[in-house]
Write a protein that binds this DNA or RNA. Sequence first.
DNA 1: CTTCAACTGACATAAACCTGTCAGTTGAAG
DNA 2: CTTCAACTGACAGGTTTATGTCAGTTGAAG
Lengths: 241, 241
Amino acid sequence: MAGGRKQTGIRRSDRLFDLIQILRDGKLHKARDLAERVEVSERTIWRDMATLKASGVPVEGERGVGYMITAPITLPPMNLTMGELEALHLAVAILGEATDPELSENAQSLAAKIDAVLPENTGPPAAGWGHAVHPFAFADARAGFRHMPLLRQAVRDRKVLRITYLSLTGESSTRLVRPLQLDYWGRVWTMSAWCEKRAGFRTFRVDRIETVIDTGAQFKDEPGKTLTEFIAYQKANKPFQ
Amino acid sequence: MAGGRKQTGIRRSDRLFDLIQILRDGKLHKARDLAERVEVSERTIWRDMATLKASGVPVEGERGVGYMITAPITLPPMNLTMGELEALHLAVAILGEATDPELSENAQSLAAKIDAVLPENTGPPAAGWGHAVHPFAFADARAGFRHMPLLRQAVRDRKVLRITYLSLTGESSTRLVRPLQLDYWGRVWTMSAWCEKRAGFRTFRVDRIETVIDTGAQFKDEPGKTLTEFIAYQKANKPFQ
DNA sequence: CTTCAACTGACATAAACCTGTCAGTTGAAG
DNA sequence: CTTCAACTGACAGGTTTATGTCAGTTGAAG
């Protein structure tokens, strides 16, 4: 046979997950062995390893030796940091809200319970907590969030920004904006702002903003250009509430 | 032309996002108009609408009338519930941790800031907060999390469960388990448990659990079958720490 | 230098995915 | 009953993606 996909088998992302599980033993694994184990070619294993590395999985390959995970992935619940606990909290909230009402309710109630438990356990959480969070998504979400820190800062500090924006039709433009609000849509962020160029409110997809320059200037509320008025403007275009 | 994709153009998920933006005006839209607007066929619009509905977007189509969003999607920041704020918190944490250290730091610091701000604004957040969360992901994440509520409950209450599990090789099996720990891997959940069938610790992917039956029985810690020992067992298989 | 195994780039191909066309059905409103 | 527009299923043909093969290169260890 001269190339081509073998068969449907397992999905790629599933295989990546499996590979992590295999690597979790902390021992050395050669690409050939992994290839045999998950029934793909070595070439695919090398590609998979590249993907895992790009996703932040602490796996290292050494020539002539093999692959090994260089940092613990699964921590016992004891080692849960506050940050991880928070992350769990949030993950549950998002997962819940992202799907149907029933699940949502459950997620919310779990969140409430975590809240309730938190103040009690000031020390390390007691054994038996039973949750852990492991932050891998196999997604290249990085690019889209590149400018978020700067934008958040700008919204907070009311900084005037000069951005270059790649519109959906593929045209690039530069404009001065007053960032008013950031929205998260589960997949992409948008920034709503007063756009000096268009002299109106505009919403930009953050992942399509090419460059951001802080002009240094701070803006003050001017009639017709404030967040309050943007909200009113939004509301006016909607028959809800 | 007899079928075939028109051209690369915009990605499907981008188009779905655009459609939401268009529908946000709360007005009626016919499939034909939407099709013209985003430059695809009506058939594709109908498929897209099905996808959006499946993703939980509150869009309704009525025969002979058109499409309309039936509930407000964008809420002004004023309307941010605590739950949404929490969700934002978590989303940032996950997004941060899921990628590289730099972004992670930013996310963490934002989280810290939100924490810091929270106690101050006891009432409705002051205008100018500038964040909102909209929970759509265009993913069919539902199926994989079906059993989570029950499993969480079982871990907490130490319930013995009878599960049917579809192994990665495609074989289905039924077994009695004592659920000990749930782990979230960013894409899938796993449940680690004492498996009576295998008389050992096993880890199951939650999305591959077909059915869960609460046997009603509660289990007590028995030597060799506890969470503590599972953690020790995990540790023993790893050279870390 | 040889061996080992990670790594890379180019290419071919098969599977999966997306979309348009066609040929209907359905439900509401007039 | 007619009209409108949502909806469905099947099919065809394109695009994208995943994978295997091939032919190398590289770095470490012996």
